[in-house]
Write a protein that binds this DNA or RNA. Structure first.
Lengths: 137, 137
DNA sequence: TCTAATCTATAGCATTTGGCTATAGTATAA
DNA sequence: TTATACTATAGCCAAATGCTATAGATTAGA
């Protein structure tokens, strides 16, 4: 019942980009140093985030990555949804055949509701909110 | 980001026991047949549930297992907490050294809040509620 | 035009975790 | 005393995770 490092590292990267928003493109190597995450791993996380239109990239020398929209318009929930494999606590929703007759549906609803509660919370937090709420910066 | 089968199977077993509450001890073999879960796997799940005082067992022939308290006093959240390994989306709470300086604490709070939101929901659902809410029974 | 600095894509692998099975018991009602 | 239950621990296979490596494509600037 852990979030994958994809989500957690990806969120940290997005937060790093948010902190350097308006400073032009940020090189992935710099994010790597600051966040202590391998360049190659970050590169993998960038791909889906670009496809989801959260990051835009500029190629060539002096290129780099930056948020595709302002930090107040990106929520943690969106980032997690993009990076995490599935978004449900159980997969009996997509695959009803894993249920047996006796307690079918009895447990399903709870897992759905709990998943929703979690994402509702994550959706309520934007990158700018995270930065502003930080008391140590 | 899936719940383990321990939690899901364990919840189904508890639900099964709840449905046969007041019928005397339930043999693990019967739960196994009804829920289509291996006896040996169920036996493993019973141990922690007994330690947490959610199940009591009677040995010998005609023995079996039963809920240690009424279904309305047991919540899904309690069951999941007992059966799931960790209860947090991230383990940077217990192990602060996995955090790096730059974004320390910035992300931690979100994971904590989302975890709490999920458990708040699970804690609000009792076994009896699940049975009564079922429209197909 | 060339090239260094960057981003892109895919494959692969080592470790961990999850999910389950097997073995060897212990306890007890009939 | 024995069949029917429950208890405890070890081990194994498969899948997922977390990361690394290799090869290549793009492009601003000299």
């Amino acid at each position: 019942m852990k979030l994958s490092t994809r989500s957690r590292y990806g969120t940290r990267m997005m937060l790093d980009l948010a902190q350097h928003y308006d400073e032009g493109p940020v090189q992935i190597g710099n994010v790597s140093k600051r966040e202590n995450i391998s360049v190659k791993y970050l590169e993998q996380l960038i791909i889906p985030l670009k496809k989801a239109n959260f990051i835009k990239s500029i190629r060539g020398p002096k290129g780099g990555h930056m948020l595709a929209k302002p930090p107040e318009e990106i929520t943690v929930g969106e980032i997690v949804r993009v990076l995490e494999g599935g978004i449900n606590l159980s997969n009996c929703i997509e695959n009803p055949e894993v249920c047996n007759r006796t307690t079918r549906c009895l447990t399903r609803g709870v897992w759905e509701e709990a998943t929703k509660a979690m994402y509702d919370k994550l959706n309520s937090v934007t990158l700018s909110k995270m930065i502003n709420d930080d008391s140590s910066s």
